[in-house]
Design a protein around this nucleic acid. Structure first.
Length: 694
DNA sequence: GATCCTCGAGTTCG
DNA sequence: CTCGAGGATC
């Protein structure tokens, strides 16, 4: 380790930058790729050096420094509060056209006469419901799932902008709703403070506290603290945006309601406006698009509501979204950053996928350091070069995406990229089919492919072996304990314990997971084998045809092609797989070890309320996982679709639905929320009763 | 042969 | 989520 005490600040800065990038690199190898290159001791040494530099030069600490990343959020449970009236989510509009469509639908239901609309910034914080009795604050709860939230009353009492007692004449009992947020400046200050505390903790040998990634996380984390005095120290504020329920008189205008609440002592966003028509609304939204950077809090859109609350009842709801309100969402936040270099990943089928290694940048609240570049053609088309300054955004608010280079910032030092001639994992010369986008590593024995294959075999939807993930797959393969997927079933406790980091408990867990996986149904097993072009859907078709696993060995191309949904390419791929001796051996060994599922019979086309319907699921559901929802659809005779098209009967939406919902709205596809979907199935009413088209 | 739809495969961060 | 490619259909 270099002598930190003798370093100049300049040297320290260079060295700390270098250390951060080296450590991040090894973090990635260790945590994500399971390919550690350096011993733990060397890693610790690097970390220690970085800590020493940061202790001496605190100004060099960056939020993304690996020293800042340990420590988990406190896990506290709060009492559950049932909301008297559920807190719903809002529909989203992403374009003017969608906004007009929303307006038109509302106008149709309200009647031909015009109506006034309120706008206000959509603050990126967390929704809260406050209950007042006799003018006193008695209870505050988080939104939770909309029906039940967490009781965080004591923490909310520490927030200055939440009045404890109200002024003037107020209803006996009522609930107001609003957003708790943290200002940007407060957030920066707070994180800096935590950074300083961490220096102190460092000296005492304590674990550092985690820094918050963005103001919204910070607000949410602060409200959910166990100790109210901690919340009290956080720069939180609240804007009230709606009257929830109310025992007593209330104004019939939303705008007036908020003025009324303001007079009681609540903080109401001063940027709230009342508009005579949609044109004014458009203007206001355009204005916000430019102004939002100037606010001291993050907003992600503009909320629109009909002002006349008597119209709210008449308009009602689509699923869990009110028709009388919507949120106009700003386009995804884009940032620019430096593309350091382009590296290549090897998939389980041998596909080589280039990805960008980026200078870490915060986009939409998350730090992005990698993004897929899909294939060489895509890189060419966008003219992305190593060293370029590129625009990064998060597609669907999640997956980072490189939009393209900023050509004006080219220095001439950028390097054009092309696919390496050898596989990055095994060195075998790569190949590409005529007219295909992807390059492949043709070496079936390529270690990267083998490991990915084991990972896939154990993954959810396949054999679902608990305890066998990326790391374990790597370890098993590297140590020679499982060179192929069938060998998993020969593993012994003694062998597993030779792996570093595994003791009795871990090995027993894994063995239990492996044992349980023998019960997986045939479609899962066929899918798990990782035959090219055979995903879960095709595996199910195959299962119907074969009936049992061993029949795969006798499958012939002609017969396979007769199966609807399987064409020449897929049939050939399956036949090719089954005629390879090593694969035949795997199947025989699996059967011998007890992986021998018998297909229970047709599930597709079964009788049920969803018979003849194609259902697509999107978003996060509350009471079931995505997979469970899909099973439910199939069990009731429906088909599961993966994307919305004209053939889709209806879309089931959960929270944070993205492009599929937009697509459905565009096509006029019916949209059901989870509740309505459940009712449809439970009622068994079928297509006719609900007016769905097949 | 063109077009629409569905499926497969790879993917990011916390 | 997105892209690419296979399958079905006209």
């Amino acid at each position: 380790m270099a002598d930190v005490s003798a370093m100049t600040q300049y040297e320290a800065r260079l060295r700390s930058e270098e250390l951060r990038s080296v450590i991040s690199f090894h973090n990635r190898l260790y945590y994500e790729l399971d390919r550690p290159e350096i011993p733990d001791a060397v890693y610790d040494e690097l970390m220690n050096e970085l800590r020493a530099i940061e202790a001496r030069f605190p100004e060099l600490i960056t939020p993304d420094s690996p020293t800042q990343r340990t420590g988990a959020a406190p896990l506290t449970t709060f009492d559950v509060v049932e909301h008297r009236v559920p807190l719903l989510s809002l529909s989203n509009c992403f374009s003017e056209a969608e906004l007009q469509a929303w307006h038109r639908r509302a106008a149709e239901r309200v009647g031909a006469e015009g109506f006034q609309i309120t706008t206000e910034p959509k603050i990126d914080g967390l929704a809260i419901a406050l209950v007042y009795e006799g003018g006193r604050f008695v209870q505050g709860a988080t939104r939770g799932d909309g029906f039940r939230g967490e009781n965080v009353t004591e923490n909310l009492r520490t927030i200055g902008t939440i009045p404890k007692t109200l002024t003037g004449r107020v209803p006996e009992r009522f609930e107001v709703r609003g957003e708790i947020y943290m200002s940007r400046s407060g957030f920066e200050e707070m994180n800096a403070g935590i950074g300083e505390q961490n220096l102190e903790r460092e000296r005492q040998g304590k674990k550092p506290l985690p820094l918050y990634a963005n103001p919204r996380n910070a607000a949410a984390g602060s409200v959910r603290q166990k100790d109210p005095t901690v919340t009290a120290g956080r720069p939180l504020a609240m804007f009230v945006y709606q009257l929830g329920w109310c025992d007593g008189e209330r104004p019939a205008s939303h705008f007036e309601t908020l003025a009324w609440l303001g007079a009681m002592g609540f903080a109401v966003n001063p940027e709230m406006r009342l508009h005579a028509g949609l044109d004014e609304v458009h203007e206001r939204i355009a204005w916000w698009g430019h102004q939002r950077e100037r606010l001291d809090y993050d907003i992600d859109g503009v909320v629109l509501k009909l002002d006349d609350t008597r119209q709210w009842d008449r308009l009602g709801y689509v699923g869990r979204e009110p028709r009388w309100a919507t949120a106009f969402k700003f386009p995804p936040q884009q940032r620019t950053t430096k593309l350091r270099r382009i590296e290549v990943n090897v998939g389980r089928t041998g596909v080589l996928t280039p990805f960008a290694v980026l200078e870490p940048v915060v986009v939409g609240g998350a730090t992005v350091s990698m993004a897929t570049l899909h294939n060489e053609g895509d890189i060419r088309r966008k003219d992305i070069r190593e060293g370029d300054t590129v625009i990064v955004q998060r597609a669907g608010e999640v997956i980072p995406q490189v939009v393209g280079p900023v050509l004006s910032l080219r220095t001439g030092a950028e390097r054009e990229w092309s696919m390496p001639t050898g596989c990055p994992a095994c060195g075998t010369p790569v190949s590409r089919e005529e007219n295909e986008a992807a390059y492949y590593c043709p070496n079936g024995g390529c270690p990267a492919q083998q490991i990915r294959m084991i990972e896939h075999f154990a993954s959810r939807g396949a054999m679902d072996i608990e305890g066998l993930g990326e790391r374990m797959a790597y370890a098993l393969f590297e140590q020679g304990l499982a060179r192929d997927v069938a060998a998993i079933y020969d593993l012994t406790a003694a062998q597993l314990m030779t792996l570093s980091g595994i003791k009795e408990k871990g090995s027993a867990n894994l063995l239990r997971g492996i044992e349980a996986s023998k019960q997986r149904p045939l479609p899962n097993v066929l899918f798990a084998l990782g035959i090219r072009h055979v995903g879960f859907e095709t595996a199910r078709l195959l299962a119907e045809h074969l009936g049992r696993l061993e029949a795969l060995l006798d499958a012939d191309v002609e017969a396979l092609q007769q199966i609807e949904g399987i064409g020449p390419v897929v049939a050939a791929s399956i036949a090719d797989w089954t005629q390879r001796p090593e694969n035949r051996d795997i199947v025989r060994r699996l059967v011998k070890r007890g992986v021998n599922p018998v297909h229970a019979g047709a599930t597709v086309g079964r009788e049920g309320p969803l018979q003849g319907l194609t259902v697509v699921v999107t978003g996060r559901l509350e009471t079931m996982s995505r997979g469970e929802a899909e099973d439910l659809i199939r069990a009731n005779g429906g088909k599961v679709g993966s994307s919305v098209s004209k053939a889709t009967s209806f879309l089931v939406v959960g929270a944070d639905a993205g492009s599929k919902l937009a697509k459905a709205q565009q096509l006029g596809t019916r949209v059901l929320d989870e509740e309505a979907f459940r009712q449809l199935i439970e009622s068994g009413g079928g297509a006719a009763a609900t007016g769905l088209r097949a």
